[in-house]
């Protein structure tokens, strides 16, 4: 059965979103966006047909969007199709600020520090954690703080962050906690690094899953990039910690603010609602157009029938993914559907 509805797709410019990111301006921004509807397309919103649910563009937070439109595209199987071209400003629409990331000193507690993950576990990046790194990693070369002052070595300038955030970390930044400020890459408060994602309007299941070979796994409804696995081996081999905030996100010069895990509802990271049937809530679209839901259901259980991509199907949602644990350095295992080329 099909339900047809007309969805107003907004095309707005970043100038209208200049005040994004604060509670006071959210309503006015939404009003401004609503008034700038310049393109309306008729889209068929379908219920589950052959395990497929079409992408719903209305789930994207208005104050994260710079534009969204339907464009012609070619899928990875060579077929001509239509895709949503979604341009986001890169700043999480559900937050006012990013961080905290690195702890300031070895006395810093979890409330004022971010996260680090290792072997599937997400840890509070407290001062205590930092001071114990040589034991944690079994390597006496770890010394991320000043022994006299207890202050943590933090990349606190754009030059330092970029020297330490690259694959071949500059030697002088060994034993640094790496954090980059979004202000280095965006002049407008409440905005990040603009990115455009091509997502098939109607997902197409592949015969066999595809590798995740690009930098993008998907995009969250709040406008944040879902990145591929962080190169922890390279990071740690330089005795650096690329600190995350509570949402398992951090900033780099290329992608801006991006996620390496899903950690909704912990610390300063906003929770997402469960579905009415207790199923985990959706928070993102993968690049193949299938939605990504939280790992656990309302009872705290994880599904036992996930495929190698961490996806499965049900009658309500069709084929969909469930994110891996917050400390697992991935969201999904592969693309079950065709992606746009």
């Amino acid at each position: 059965m099909q339900i047809k509805s007309t969805l107003g797709l907004v095309v707005c410019c970043s100038l209208l979103l200049g005040g994004c990111g604060t509670d006071d301006t959210t309503d006015s921004v939404a009003d401004a966006v609503a008034e700038t509807v310049t393109d309306t397309v008729e889209t068929e919103v379908e219920e589950v047909v052959d395990n497929i649910v079409v992408v719903d563009p209305s789930v994207f937070a208005l104050n994260s969007l710079e534009s969204i439109e339907i464009v012609d595209c070619t899928l990875s199987n060579g077929d001509a199709s239509t895709c949503y071209s979604v341009t986001v400003n890169g700043f999480p629409a559900d937050r006012n600020e990013l961080g905290p990331f690195c702890p300031e000193s070895i006395e810093t507690t979890a409330d004022d520090a971010g996260k680090w993950f290792d072997g599937g576990v997400l840890y509070d990046l407290t001062g205590s954690f930092v001071s114990n790194l040589s034991v944690f990693y079994g390597d006496s070369k770890w010394q991320l703080y000043d022994k006299d002052t207890g202050l943590v070595n933090i990349t606190d300038t754009q030059v330092a962050c970029e020297a330490a955030a690259r694959p071949n970390v500059a030697a002088e930044y060994n034993n640094f906690c790496v954090q980059c400020e979004i202000s280095y890459y965006s002049d407008v408060a409440g905005e990040g690094v603009s990115s455009t994602y091509l997502i098939p309007v109607t997902p197409v299941l592949r015969d066999s899953p595809a590798d995740i070979s690009s930098d993008n796994v998907g995009v969250a409804f709040n406008g944040v990039n879902l990145a591929v696995a962080a190169p922890t081996q390279a990071i740690l081999s330089a005795y650096t910690i690329a600190a995350f905030d509570d949402c398992v996100g951090h900033v780099n010069p290329v992608a801006g603010y991006h996620y390496h895990g899903a950690n909704h509802g912990d610390g300063t990271c906003p929770a997402i609602d469960y579905e009415s049937d207790g199923h985990g809530g959706a928070f993102a679209y993968a690049m193949d157009g299938f939605a990504i839901y939280s790992m656990l259901n309302q009872s705290g259980e994880e599904d036992t029938d996930l495929d190698e991509c961490r996806g499965h199907s049900d009658d309500s949602r069709g084929y969909h993914y469930h994110a891996a644990g917050a400390g697992e350095n991935t969201f999904i295992g592969c693309f079950a559907g065709e992606i746009a080329q």
Binding site: G120, A229, C309, G325, N329, G333
Partner: peptide, 17 residues
């Protein structure tokens, strides 16, 4: 299951911990 990320194989969990 072992899956490829940027040309490297990584174990992606698909069963409950």
């Amino acid at each position: 299951t072992c899956r490829v990320f940027n040309e490297a194989l990584m174990c992606v969990r698909n069963q409950p911990i």
